[in-house]
């Protein structure tokens, strides 16, 4: 198992070609999966015996919540690589993942609130998961703002990487402290994700949506990385060749 293909990925020109070749395919696969998920989730899946039709928001809320955490972990790993090995491409990854992650965290929060209203009558419930999502959004905004505020690009990326890694350590602590805080007074209403019992016909569309949106955000991050990568290596020879090639 030689790892050369992986090491080559960290070289800017190679990554540019790799990204340009694979992102369109990833986006097509993502579109197909999302369409399947939508059809399966909205039309084929039967209504939930408890929550009726409103549980269909799960097909957007759960993938968004899962993505917000997965993208943050990816960003923190990129941050570690930036801090330890100073790989330039990891800086592009860190900067590219932050806005995508922030957008999906905001989506997870919004859909969580839209789901909360019909099921508990309140838009905002200080449930452990929703509160952790809110903290995650603040962390994302902190990373983006910190990176935006510093003028020198390399130092800005390292500062953002530092905050991303420190935030990563903080996420489980916040999750635990909110769980502990929530358990002090037993909330009368049922818990937020009343875990509607999902049988197969409901579950597969959910996987489809989750995988589809994950592929989409991966492709989106790679497109942003391409732009950031090209911007940082403007004077390199390979940039002229690649950008002036007719294919683009």
């Amino acid at each position: 198992m030689n790892w050369t293909w992986f090491h080559k990925l960290s070289s800017p020109p190679h990554f540019h070609r790799f990204a340009r070749r694979w992102t369109p395919w990833m986006e097509c696969a993502a579109a197909a999966l999302v369409v399947y998920g939508l059809i399966g989730g909205l039309i084929l899946a039967p209504p939930d015996y408890q929550q009726g039709e409103v549980y269909r928001i799960i097909y957007v809320h759960v993938p968004a919540a899962w993505l917000s955490l997965a993208l943050y972990s990816g960003m923190a790993v990129a941050g570690l690589i930036v801090l330890i090995w100073r790989v330039k491409l990891a800086e592009c990854a860190l900067i590219s993942i932050a806005p995508v992650g922030a957008s999906f965290t905001a989506l997870a929060l919004a859909t969580g609130m839209l789901w909360g209203k019909p099921t508990w009558g309140a838009y905002w419930v200080w449930d452990a998961r929703l509160t952790s999502e809110l903290v995650l959004l603040f962390l994302y905004l902190g990373v983006i703002a910190l990176h935006g505020a510093m003028s020198e690009p390399r130092a800005a990326a390292r500062a953002a990487a530092l905050l991303a890694v420190v935030g990563w350590v903080n996420v489980p602590i916040v999750r635990y402290s909110v769980d502990w805080w929530n358990s002090l007074h037993q909330t009368s209403s049922i818990t937020l994700l009343g875990k509607p019992t999902l049988d197969a016909s409901m579950l597969w569309p959910l996987f489809g949506m989750a995988l589809g949106l994950t592929l989409f955000s991966a492709a989106n991050v790679m497109r942003r990385m391409q732009a950031e990568n090209v911007r940082r290596n403007a004077r390199q020879r390979w940039v002229r060749e690649q950008l002036e090639a007719p294919h683009v």
Binding site: V60, S103, L114
Partner: peptide, 21 residues
């Protein structure tokens, strides 16, 4: 099932997020 506003605005927001990205 009477919750059209919530369900469709959720999917609308999801589409908006994807398009914005």
């Amino acid at each position: 099932g009477g919750h059209a506003v919530f369900v469709w605005s959720s999917f609308g927001l999801a589409a908006a997020t994807v398009l914005w990205n």
